[in-house]
Write a protein that binds this DNA or RNA. Structure first.
Length: 279
DNA sequence: CGGCATGTTGCGCA
DNA sequence: TTGCGCAACATGCC
């Protein structure tokens, strides 16, 4: 499920379901998801409380309670929130349950996560995972000047820089892949080879377009996933723009699809003029 | 059975 | 101190 657009859709669901709702029962038995808090702390923090607001930054959700407490949720790789009738049986891969009452209606919200890479913890102060996040491209926009400087500083491949949550919160493998294809920039290009303002601008626009596109897509169908991507998951298929067969490489441990035909690879300036005099 | 998966983290090493 | 490459995490699905 997870990446900025999915988490944003989840935030909208949870806002409708939970804001103003009072918790009548809650529980989890998964110490892994609630780490470093205890599973018992989850129920203790929630029961009797009212949800006041829900915010998203990157792939994290922060849900505020009426007593100043906070519930943090990260969907990991396979997490999602679903709403069911009160008293409904445990759903497949359910890891936590929150029963609530809202405007005289009672229902249950369940956290479901097959692989359990997600997080779900009730705490009384912000966690480092949240405070360390960089700006959110959707909520905060991308400050081109700052972004450009960040790119120029590193020699890591630009795609790895984009997926660094301290640089831009919420960009994952899909968004980085799609955004760079839209920007026509080779994901292997080192950041310090992308010094032109036009490069930062193209990447920022590519990411924004990828986010907007996926959001619109999520709104429509629930399951038309892969089909909506330009290049993600389409290695060896023709590039939708220039028809060249799409290539695949591994960057930062993640499969990366791109087009050798229309995504420009930038090389770093390896030598200054004084290092390599002409002769 | 083998390979891959939308994410994060910790470890060994340069 | 920083950065890099990777294995590991836990499980489903093709």
């Amino acid at each position: 499920m997870p990446e900025l657009p999915d988490v944003e859709m989840t935030r909208r669901d949870l806002k409708r379901w939970l804001v103003g709702a009072i918790v009548t029962a809650a529980g989890t038995d998964d110490a892994r998801l609630s780490r470093p808090a205890s599973p018992r702390a989850f129920a203790r923090a929630l029961v009797g409380r009212t949800f006041e607001r829900i915010e998203r930054r990157g792939k994290w959700l922060r849900i505020g309670l009426d007593d100043g407490g906070t519930l943090f949720s990260h969907l990991g790789m396979t997490g999602e929130w679903v709403r069911v009738a009160i008293g409904a049986p445990v759903v497949r891969f359910e890891r936590a349950r929150i029963d609530v009452a809202l405007r005289r209606r009672a229902f249950s919200v369940r956290y479901v996560d097959a692989r359990r890479f997600g997080r779900l913890l009730a705490v009384r102060k912000d966690i480092a995972d949240w405070t360390a996040l960089g700006p959110d491209p959707l909520a905060d926009g991308i400050d081109l000047d700052r972004f450009s400087k960040t790119l120029a500083r590193g020699r890591r491949a630009v795609k790895e820089i984009l997926m660094d949550q301290r640089v831009l919160a919420g960009v994952g493998n899909i968004l980085a892949t799609e955004g760079l294809w839209i920007a026509r920039i080779d994901p292997r290009s080192p950041g310090n080879a992308l010094l032109l303002p036009a490069d930062a601008r193209a990447i920022a626009r590519g990411l924004q377009r990828a986010i907007t596109r996926e959001l619109a897509d999520r709104k429509r169908s629930t399951d038309a996933r892969i089909d909506s991507f330009f290049v993600y998951g389409r290695a060896r298929q023709p590039c939708p723009r220039c028809d060249a067969p799409l290539s695949s490489v591994v960057l930062g441990g993640r499969t990366t699809v791109f087009c050798r035909g229309c995504q420009v690879r930038r090389r770093p300036e390896r030598f200054s003029l004084s290092d390599r005099p002409e002769r």
